[in-house]
Simulated assay, not measured.
Amino acid sequence: MMYRPAKAYLCLSALKNNLKSVQAMAPDSKVLAVIKANGYGHGIERVAHQLSGADAFGVASIDEAMLLRQKGFLHRILLLEGLFSEAEIPVVIQNRLDLVVHSQHQLNWLLNSKISSQISVWVKVDTGMHRLGFEPKELPSVISRLQNSANEFCIHIMSHFSSADEKSASAELFTQQQIDTFEDCTAAFTFNRSLANSAGIMRYPLSHYEWVRPGITLYGAGDIPGFENHGEAVMQLESEIISIKNIPAGESVGYANTWTAQRPSTIGVIAIGYGDGYPRHAPSGTPVLINGQRVPLVGRVSMDMITVDLTDLAVQPQIGDCAVLWGKELSVDEIARFSGTIGYELLCGITKRVPMIEVQ
């Protein structure tokens, strides 16, 4: 029994359709579907089932990989941050996991271990993001050490975009420089390569190479210039109006009196708040859909409630009417822009007390 009205509806067909869209955009590449962070907040097992048509999955840790293996998934699974300790190597071998290798200490762990079976390693090169990865000039030495090891490695080469989803001229120039750097430092090798994330898949076809790594686009989100309607929203976050109040001009609403009515106003209270994962920093004016009509949030977001201004609606809502916080008609990315964050954070931040209901 679900008594509280806050719920997240997950459209399973949207996941499948978004994967098909990626495959159509990169028809000559294999697809590594990124499902880390509990499937971007959608449930990793649920997401993996719907994205079973992908060629591989990308996760952040062995914990996530082990959950998939325990649930019977036989796909290639890539640990996107590689090993956190040398002690993980036997688990990697036993569960046939692929590894990112991004630093000398990880490389040394592999080379100093006696490994009886082949391991697929994805050597990460830093093309300018300066987070993880070997310097381009180090790549030949890293490859040579892997090839000359007593252990057997299947080698791939990868990097990661920092600004492919940015439209400014400087960001586009930097992204092209990353592509050029990656092309230059890998040209001497015949290994499979991977560079394109969601934005790269859409905006930079020359970055597709043998593998693409879609993440946010699989969930129908992500602010990607020129591709604002690139996917179907998977998550629709809904709740209901639980109270309607009429207040006179000059009265304030919510904690700290941050919003004051400039006219006689009708205020609706919706059962959703930061305890559910709705962003506390969403300001007054952030849109909410009430029966399909946009109304502005007013006052501060509380743990369990938000308030909206219903005054301008032609037909006044009733207690129990539906409120959509984000979904198909109201992008999570728009809510994120109002809140000074990104859609990734909002999707990943839905808390356990919000039931997730699968729909087709």
Score class of each variant (00 low, 15 high):
residue 95 N to L: 08
residue 231 G to V: 05
residue 68 L to Y: 01
residue 237 L to V: 10
residue 238 E to P: 00
residue 24 A to R: 12
residue 66 M to F: 13
residue 19 L to M: 14
residue 143 I to C: 05
residue 178 Q to H: 05
residue 274 Y to Q: 11
residue 315 V to A: 09
residue 134 F to A: 02
residue 82 G to S: 03
residue 110 L to D: 01
residue 165 D to S: 10
residue 139 L to Q: 05
residue 247 I to P: 03
residue 98 D to L: 02
residue 293 Q to E: 15
residue 169 A to I: 14
residue 28 D to N: 11
residue 295 V to Y: 02
residue 141 S to R: 12
residue 39 G to E: 08
residue 79 L to D: 04
residue 28 D to P: 01
residue 268 G to Y: 06
residue 350 I to E: 08
residue 240 E to I: 00
residue 174 F to L: 14
residue 144 S to V: 02
residue 286 T to K: 03
residue 89 I to P: 01
residue 224 I to G: 00
residue 127 T to M: 13
residue 266 T to L: 15
residue 242 I to N: 00
residue 165 D to T: 00
residue 156 H to E: 12
residue 107 L to Y: 03
residue 217 T to K: 00
residue 216 I to W: 07
residue 227 F to Y: 15
residue 344 Y to H: 11
residue 191 F to Y: 15
residue 114 K to S: 13
residue 3 Y to D: 12
residue 291 N to P: 00
residue 344 Y to V: 11
residue 274 Y to I: 06
residue 344 Y to R: 12
residue 24 A to Q: 14
residue 212 V to A: 09
residue 174 F to H: 11
residue 307 T to K: 07
residue 74 L to G: 00
residue 158 M to L: 14
residue 319 I to Q: 11
residue 356 M to V: 06
residue 228 E to C: 02
residue 32 L to S: 03
residue 314 A to W: 07
residue 94 Q to D: 14
residue 82 G to V: 04
residue 100 V to A: 06
residue 360 Q to S: 12
residue 229 N to H: 14
residue 336 A to S: 06
residue 14 A to T: 04
residue 93 I to G: 00
residue 273 G to F: 13
residue 91 V to F: 09
residue 103 S to L: 01
residue 197 N to R: 08
residue 250 G to N: 09
residue 264 P to M: 10
residue 261 A to D: 06
residue 221 A to K: 05
residue 99 L to P: 01
residue 30 K to V: 04
residue 152 E to H: 08
residue 45 E to H: 04
residue 190 T to W: 07
residue 161 F to L: 08
residue 304 D to Q: 11
residue 207 S to Q: 05
residue 158 M to P: 00
residue 299 G to A: 09
residue 104 Q to D: 14
residue 290 I to E: 04
residue 37 A to L: 13
residue 69 R to V: 08
residue 312 D to V: 01
residue 262 Q to F: 13
residue 72 G to S: 02
residue 7 K to Q: 15
residue 114 K to E: 15
residue 250 G to Q: 11
residue 55 D to N: 13
residue 182 F to Q: 02
residue 222 G to E: 14
residue 310 L to Y: 10
